[in-house]
Design a protein around this nucleic acid. Sequence first.
RNA 1: CGGGACGUGGCGCAGCCUGGUAGCGCGCACGCUUGGGGUGCGUGAGGUCCCGAGUUCGAAUCUCGGCGUCCCGACCA
Length: 609
Amino acid sequence: MVALTFLLSENGRVHQNVVDYKVENNSMRWSQYFVPTLREDPADAEVVSHKLLLRAGIIRQLAAGIYSYLPLGQRVTLKIMQMLREEMNRIGGQEFSLPALHPAEVWKESGRWDAIGDDMFRLKDRKGADMCLGMTHEEIFTTIARNEIRSYKQLPQIWYQIQIKFRDEARPKSGLMRLRTFIMKDAYSFDIDEAGLDRSFEDQREAYQRIFTRAGIKYTIVEASSGAMGGSASNEFVARTDAGEDLIATCENCGYAANLEKATSRLARITDFVGPKAPEEFPTPGVRTIEDLTTFPGGATAENQIKSLVYVATINNELTAALVLMRGDHQLHETKLADAFGATAIRPAHSEEIRELLGASAGSLGGVGAKESARAANRELVIVADEGLRGRRNMTTGANRDDHHLRGVDLARDMRVDRWADLRTVASGEACPRCETGVLEVYKAMEIGHIFKLGTKYSQSMGATVLTPDGKEVPIVMGSYGIGVERIMTAAIEQNHDQDGIIWPNTLSPFDVVVTITNMKQDSLREAGEELYKDLQRAGLEVLLDDRDERAGVKFKDADLIGIPYRITVGKKIADGLVELFKRRAKTSEDVKLSDIVSRIQKLALAGL
RNA sequence: CGGGACGUGGCGCAGCCUGGUAGCGCGCACGCUUGGGGUGCGUGAGGUCCCGAGUUCGAAUCUCGGCGUCCCGACCA
C-alpha cells in the first residue's frame, strides 16, 4: 500500500509527496541504510560534483559514462523526475513511456540513421535487422502522431516522457556531466501552425524556468546554435560552473546572453587612412604569424592585418574549400563557420591542400587573387570574411607567395569576398551588442536544458500530416524540449556545496531532515531520538535517523557530506527538553524545544517546494 | 579519433628506475578505551600486483601486445 500525502506549501502550491512513511518506517535508519560514504577523494574524480557524488555514496561507476544510482541517488533522481512531471503536467503535458530499443527503419525515414555517426549505439537483432538504442525520441513520437493524429481538432498536443537515453559519447566525462546512458525528460509539441508552435515553445520555456528555479539552480537562457537538430530557433538553459563545457557571454546591464557559438559584440569603429591605389607587395622573410608581422619593420598592428585561414567544409557530403578572413587580432569560432556554411563538418586544410590552392604556406596567405590561384589549380575556393573586416582598407595580409606580404589592401576593392558572416569569437570585456553601456562577461557553464522549434523537419520526412479546417493536408509543426535529469543533479551540486560536502536545495534533498543521536549508548538519547523520528514521519516528513553506534563527530561529518538541509541533534540538552537545529547551508545551530521542533522543521522543509 | 597520465587488499597511495619472501594510511572484524566535529591502544582478516605473451634460475619491477579508467583536444541531434 502506498499512500500519497499532499502537502500545501507556503506559496499555495500542492506538493505531492510520494514517499509513504508507513512503508519506509524502518528503512530510514542510517545503521541499515546503504550510504557508503568515502573519507577521501576518489582518484578518478576531478570536478567537485563528481567527487561529492562518489564521496556521499550517491553513485558508483560501472564503466566510463555509466553509473549506478545508490539509494540516496535514486531518491534524488525520483524527486527531480517528480518535479519535471508536475511542471510538464501543469502546461498540459501528457506522460508517455516509449521504448528505448528502436528499429532502424524509423531513423532511416527521418534520415538520421545516416546523419548520426558513432554517437548512436547500434545493434542487430537475431534476424540480423538493424536496431539502435534511442538517443532521443523525435522519430518515435512522430510515428505515433502520424498514425493517430488526423485533424487540426486534435491539436495541439504536448507529449513527454522521462526515459533512459543512450549516446556513445566520444568522451564521457566529469561524473554525471557527460554520460553514455542517462535519464532525460523529453517533450514534444504538435501544432497546426507556427503560431501554435510559438505558444507551445513559450509554455515550455516558462515551465523550464519554474523547474530550474524549484531545483535551486541559477541558470541563464541563451541563444544557441541548433546544430544538426535543425529548426528555426532554440534556447539553451545553462548553469554557471567552472566544470561546464560551454562558454557563455552575458551582459549584466541588459540581460543579453548567448552561447559563444552565437554571441556577438560591438566593435569600436576603425577609420582607416587612405592607402595606395593598389596593394603593394613587400618581402617579409621569416614572418609566419600575425604577431611576427606586428614587430616586423614595415609591418602592421594586428588590428590592421587580415588573418587568412583555409578550411575544408563538408556540405551535403561534398568537400568545399574556404578561405576564411578575420581581423588579425580576432579569433575564428569554428562553430560559427560551420553554421555559416550549413556544413556538417569542418577542418583546417592540410598544408599540401593549402599549397595546391594558393601556392604558398600558411603564414603567407591572403585573399588577393586567391580565387584565381585556386582556379589555376583547377579548384574552387570560397572566400568568406568576418563582419569585423567590412569596409576596411589599407590592410596588410599575406601575398600568397612565401615570405611576402601585401600592404594597402582594400577588402572591397582587392578581394572577391563571396560571403560576409559573423565568425569572430567574442571575448570578455567587449561591448554588448544590444545595449549602449554594457560590457560582456564570458564564463563557463553547463547545458541543463534545451528547447527547439523543430518546425516540420520530422513531420515532413516522416509524413505526419493533418487536415486543416479547409480540408488541406499540412505537416504538423513540431517542437522538441529536453532536460537532463542527471545534469540537474550535477548543476545543483556544482552550485550548492562547500568544503564539507553537498548542500542540497530542499526540493532535491534525499531527506528533509536527519536526526542525529549523539550517543547510542545513552538510553535517554536513543529513546528521544526514536520518538522524534516517528513524530517527524507522522508529520509527513522524510527523515533519516542516524542511529549508528558512531561517535558524534563521525555522524556530523557524514551528515554534512550528504547534504541534508536540516539536522536535529539529540544530545545532552534533551534533559532540558531541548534539541539542536543545525542548518546545513547557513551552518548555524540553535536550541529548539523538543515540543516545537516538528512544526519548525515542517515549515522549513516546505519552503521552496 | 589525436595527445598525455595512470592501473598494486574495499578506498587513497608507496614499491618499479637498479628483477630476489608485497608494504603504509584509511576502512573492515574482535577486545579494551573514548563518547559533541572522522577518539586512543592492541590483535586480526583481506592482494589473480589489469590481462596475455616474451626475456630470465627468478618478473609488481624489464620487453612486446591488448584491455580499462582519467585528463587535454576533436566531437557532442
